[in-house]
Simulated scan of single mutants.
Amino acid sequence: MHSAQTLQELLNTAHVAPDVFELRPDYRALLIAVDGLVPEPSDEAGNALLEQAEASARAALSQQKVEHLPHVAAWREAYQAFGAKPNRTRNSLEALVRRADAGLPRVNRLTDLYNAISVLHQIPLGGEDLASYRGAPRLIRATGHEPFDTVASGEPIVEYPDAGEVVWCDEDGVTCRRWNWRQGRRTQLRDDTTSALFILDALEPMTTEALLAAGKDLTKHLLLLGPEVVTAQQLLQSDVHAPGQ
């Protein structure tokens, strides 16, 4: 089991490439690493949180279309900036909000938790199995040669991102394509996950205060998922362009 210090040392080496900040100087990432999780199936606490998230999404969508929600709109613009089509490849927040009216998926209590927090705080939020991770998280603009382990038509395959695409990766390849669109098979959360990495992505108009509040809410719930849970976090942002507060 990792200690909080070991988790923090890993996060301290996380990196966002300068050309990503050139694309969006307002980008911030909050990374939260956690260990000591006790795997459990979906439960009543998670269901209640998902029901709150569904109600929150319905209330938001009663006022405006999903693509006009401020943070969703910002991410659609960011996707267009590196050549992705936001109507075809939706960021993870938009994809979840669009599902909320019909009911968010119930997977296991860890996945249920971070999906609920994503919708409640209107923020793209990805989860990776830390035991399958190799080295530190890095957000880069792809060359097009980085392998991405995924599934197509029910069969495992290796794909490659487009050149210039914004991707999260580790030493073994891409872990999430198009910033926060689709996570890979190799590092996906599983029913037996005990250590995880969560990535919360923010663009203006989301403030850093709101980003940290979402991370605090996620951490509060993660600490309830086992008697020996430990966490660490790291905020990544541009040194040149201070984000709005």
Results as ranks from 00 to 15, higher is better:
residue 192 D to N: 15
residue 124 P to A: 08
residue 136 A to F: 06
residue 172 D to T: 13
residue 133 Y to K: 01
residue 202 A to M: 15
residue 164 G to K: 09
residue 123 I to A: 08
residue 149 D to S: 04
residue 138 R to Q: 13
residue 210 A to H: 05
residue 210 A to L: 03
residue 183 Q to H: 12
residue 144 G to F: 04
residue 130 L to A: 15
residue 174 V to A: 03
residue 147 P to Q: 02
residue 157 I to T: 10
residue 209 E to A: 13
residue 209 E to P: 07
residue 151 V to R: 01
residue 150 T to H: 01
residue 164 G to H: 08
residue 161 P to V: 02
residue 167 V to M: 03
residue 185 R to V: 00
residue 161 P to S: 04
residue 143 T to K: 04
residue 132 S to E: 11
residue 196 A to N: 08
residue 136 A to D: 08
residue 195 S to K: 07
residue 152 A to Y: 12
residue 130 L to W: 00
residue 200 L to M: 12
residue 203 L to Y: 10
residue 166 V to F: 00
residue 169 C to N: 08
residue 153 S to F: 10
residue 125 L to I: 13
residue 155 E to A: 11
residue 203 L to W: 06
residue 187 T to L: 00
residue 175 T to Y: 00
residue 156 P to H: 03
residue 144 G to S: 12
residue 205 P to F: 06
residue 155 E to C: 09
residue 159 E to V: 09
residue 171 E to G: 03
residue 138 R to N: 07
residue 192 D to Q: 15
residue 167 V to I: 13
residue 202 A to S: 15
residue 137 P to M: 05
residue 196 A to C: 07
residue 162 D to S: 08
residue 163 A to S: 13
residue 199 I to V: 15
residue 123 I to R: 05
residue 195 S to L: 10
residue 185 R to F: 00
residue 205 P to E: 05
residue 185 R to Q: 12
residue 159 E to D: 10
residue 177 R to P: 01
residue 126 G to M: 15
residue 159 E to G: 03
residue 182 R to D: 13
residue 171 E to D: 15
residue 189 L to V: 12
residue 201 D to Y: 14
residue 155 E to R: 12
residue 139 L to A: 04
residue 152 A to L: 14
residue 159 E to L: 12
residue 152 A to W: 08
residue 171 E to K: 00
residue 171 E to H: 03
residue 178 R to V: 08
residue 134 R to V: 03
residue 158 V to S: 02
residue 165 E to P: 02
residue 139 L to N: 10
residue 176 C to P: 11
residue 146 E to T: 01
residue 139 L to W: 00
residue 136 A to W: 06
residue 201 D to F: 14
residue 131 A to F: 01
residue 151 V to C: 02
residue 158 V to Y: 00
residue 180 N to I: 10
residue 127 G to N: 05
residue 210 A to D: 07
residue 166 V to N: 04
residue 155 E to H: 09
residue 172 D to M: 14
residue 146 E to F: 01
residue 206 M to A: 06
residue 132 S to V: 00
residue 129 D to F: 00
residue 205 P to G: 07
residue 160 Y to G: 05
residue 151 V to D: 01
residue 193 T to N: 09
residue 158 V to L: 04
residue 202 A to T: 14
residue 175 T to Q: 13
residue 172 D to A: 15
residue 160 Y to M: 05
residue 200 L to R: 04
residue 195 S to V: 10
residue 157 I to P: 07
residue 165 E to Q: 13
residue 151 V to A: 02
residue 165 E to R: 02
residue 147 P to A: 01
residue 177 R to I: 07
residue 134 R to C: 10
residue 141 R to P: 03
residue 139 L to C: 14
residue 185 R to C: 01
residue 191 D to W: 11
residue 180 N to M: 12
residue 180 N to C: 14
residue 137 P to A: 08
residue 144 G to D: 08
residue 124 P to Q: 09
residue 149 D to L: 00
residue 125 L to W: 03
residue 164 G to R: 09
residue 177 R to W: 06
residue 146 E to S: 07
residue 175 T to K: 11
residue 208 T to V: 09
residue 172 D to K: 13
residue 202 A to I: 14
residue 175 T to G: 11
residue 126 G to E: 15
residue 134 R to K: 13
residue 175 T to V: 11
residue 188 Q to P: 01
